[in-house]
Design a binder for these strands. Structure first.
Length: 289
DNA sequence: CAGACGTGGCC
DNA sequence: TGGCCAAGTCT
């Protein structure tokens, strides 16, 4: 792959996202990466801005109650991420001098930070040289390098080796390329209807040269949502996000007709720590902690 | 490793 | 209309 062409293209068309600002902090980058896990940029941006204004450093978030954090997470989805970020902030404040670590293994030890996020923070916040592999990068590599229509099943080891092979020696250049590959996957080499006419590596793309063959690998199961526990949990939590005071169970009973499923979901929210029961039996977002 | 885990916009 | 998809992580 023509790495230089990708980087030049990126410098020309990249989006002006707030977490890419020259005065970005490790904390800002970490918060953005966690919010962006499975959630589109357009929905993250306003929430990220609000969070940075309200909690500019990890210790500020750590000092907040879990309920406030879950409420401020809003409708970004997968609210357990908010709880884990809260826990991570507490660990960073207590054990790392209120500074987000720059070391990949140290980052990996924090809750909610996995292989992707740890390397994204190390690279984008601190300019470390490490392969940053997300779904965009996997798709770009699958097409441009391997000539496949889509990426196959994820394999952290193999995926990182693929990117490592492309990474420039200089750490800053490596981080720059990772950002560029992600942007290429997000804007041009998209899952549906890729904009190949706008692609900076069209002439060397292995998929293009192979005649754009259809994807041959295993069929990816589409995730259902309607009627699942995830939907019911979302409905239950949405009621409590909108309530300043604890709500009686009867209030929650209105969100879903299947009582068994409703109760199971409420219980799982309690287990996850996303909901708490008051002494008088009502339900609310969690208080101190 | 497959499945759970939110939410909303798009084609 | 409804399936597909969005900068993953955890168990």
């Amino acid at each position: 792959m023509d790495v230089r062409a990708v980087v030049d293209w990126f410098d020309e068309v990249k989006r002006d996202l707030p977490w890419r600002s020259p005065d970005r902090t490790g904390w800002g980058v970490l918060v953005s990466e966690v919010m962006l896990q499975q959630t589109p940029v357009a929905r993250v941006e306003p929430v990220w801005l609000a969070w940075m204004a309200r909690w500019p450093v990890p210790s500020a978030l750590a000092a907040e109650s879990k309920g406030e954090v879950v409420r401020a997470w809003g409708k970004l989805g997968y609210p357990r991420r908010a709880l884990r970020l809260h826990e991570a902030a507490a660990a960073i404040a207590a054990e790392h001098g209120d500074v987000v670590p720059a070391d990949v293994d140290t980052l990996l030890a924090l809750p909610g930070i996995g292989a992707y996020t740890a390397r994204a923070v190390a690279a984008f916040a601190y300019g470390k040289r490490c392969p940053v592999v997300d779904t965009n990068v996997r798709r770009v590599i699958a097409r441009a390098v391997h000539g496949a229509g889509e990426a196959g099943p994820p394999s952290t080891t193999k995926d990182m080796a693929d990117v490592e092979a492309l990474l420039p020696k200089e750490p800053a250049d490596a981080a720059h390329l990772s950002a560029a590959l992600m942007e290429l996957g997000a804007l041009v080499c998209t899952a549906r209807t890729p904009r190949c006419r706008d692609c900076p590596v069209l002439s060397t793309c292995a998929w293009q040269r192979a005649g754009r063959p259809a994807y041959q690998g295993p069929v990816k199961a589409v995730q259902k949502f309607a009627g699942t526990d995830r939907q019911v949990r979302g409905l239950l939590l949405d009621v409590l996000r909108g309530s300043a005071a604890p709500e009686p169970k009867a209030k929650l009973d209105g969100v879903w007709s299947d009582a068994a499923q409703r109760d199971r979901c409420l219980d799982s929210l309690l287990v996850d720590g996303l909901v708490e029961q008051t002494a008088d039996g009502r339900f609310a977002l969690p208080g101190e902690g």
